[in-house]
Design a protein around this nucleic acid. Structure first.
Lengths: 213, 213
DNA sequence: CATTCCATCACCCTATTGTGGGATGCCTTT
DNA sequence: AAAGGCATCCCACAATAGGGTGATGGAATG
């Protein structure tokens, strides 16, 4: 098995050098580029042909989050590992949404860096402990805690609700379900009763937040 | 530092015994219970007082996913580590939604089990590589691929939209923002233009799906 | 200082929704 | 056979929302 080609983006000179030698010293990986900023990002990547990219978030000029978005667009196959001191929701969320495949806190020890590189190369998503936990929590809350609710909606009511959260009007729903406008309205009344809401909008919100469909 | 109290739920006798001795042999942890099913789940937990629970998904009677939901309700502070052979979306998704704090594939080697137990105890969320990657992908897609849209909503427009996804009517929004009904409508018209939608409902859907607020 | 953007409000008219009835026919359960 | 739930439809009336047009004052920009 050939060695893992790692490219590095880190503005801090000392850290960049340290990581370079850390990686270079490993038998199963090599550092094919160490850059201080994202100038000429794409050209650098084309030239270096990395298997994995290690990307700092805080950098002068284009920051790591913008960079990962560009990389994912231009080279969707190359996993990007974020390294950062930030562990607030906003940074984690943005980096992962931008397409990062892993998120390391800089407190991680050298061996964890190396392990994470191997891990991401093999299809994993290495994340420092607290970050992984936050991701899980964000994930769990987007799905809503007290989900498993069920409001005893009938089949037809669910269908109507499903159409509703497509943004359709009653008329359009009537049309696409092949029933009359008045029937749709009738189902809506019933849905309102069961969900304890009093408008289209509230029903949609509840349905989306609680994944009722 | 006192040792980590681990409780074990696993229907397979051999695996259960193996895990028991594996854990018991570690200096920093002890196995305070090894159960073949979820009968008397809560009583067992109360009696064993575990710090961490290791839970198999496939079990006779109550399965691991139902069990984790019950545990999270009754003992929200105890992290639950799922162990399973399943790595399909449905199982991962359900287990994590039910409140699991980690998800290990049974292919994991013994040292990884032990590391995962320590990890989850310290606030991490250990997940086997492919699972972590799937969670990230699910996460990224629930947030919507072509998100990072921003529609240049003004401050006030965002405020109105925020109220809207609370389920409020125009009148209520006018009231709570201290502006007139007509002004709310005015902002709404502008929001519709910017989001390219034509109704309250569509705006709410777009705002929720793309996390515009 | 003219222009543009924004927040604010008003009025008119139409379209869509919300609410409260009620009716029919078809199931399944009792 | 009676009772209940469901899907289907209808009507009427009130409330809310959508679309068009325009006006005002303030802040920011050039």
């Amino acid at each position: 098995m050939s060695s893992i080609r790692v490219a590095l983006f880190e503005d801090n000179f000392h850290l960049r050098e340290s990581l370079y030698f850390l990686i270079a010293a490993e038998a199963d990986m090599e550092c094919v580029g160490a850059f201080a900023d994202c100038n000429g990002l794409k050209q650098n990547i084309v030239a270096a042909k990395p298997d994995v990219i290690l990307m700092d978030i805080e950098m002068p000029g284009m920051n790591g989050i913008e960079a990962v978005a560009e990389i994912k667009q231009a080279f969707p196959g190359i996993p990007v590992l974020m390294q950062t001191i930030f562990q607030d929701d906003e940074h984690i969320f943005n980096a992962l949404c931008a397409g990062a495949s892993g998120y390391l806190l800089k407190s991680a020890d050298p061996q964890q860096y190396l392990q994470a590189i191997r891990d991401v190369r093999q299809g994993g998503a290495p994340m420092s402990g607290p970050v992984a936990r936050r991701v899980l929590e964000l994930f769990q809350q987007t799905v809503k805690p007290e989900s498993r609710n069920h409001y005893d909606l009938t089949q037809k009511e669910k269908e109507v609700l499903a159409e509703l959260i497509e943004g359709k009007s009653f008329k359009m729903i009537a049309d696409s379900l092949g029933i009359s406008y008045e029937t749709v309205r009738s189902h809506m009344k019933s849905i309102y009763n069961k969900l304890h809401v009093h408008s289209n909008t509230e029903a949609v919100i509840k349905a989306l937040k609680e994944r009722l469909v």
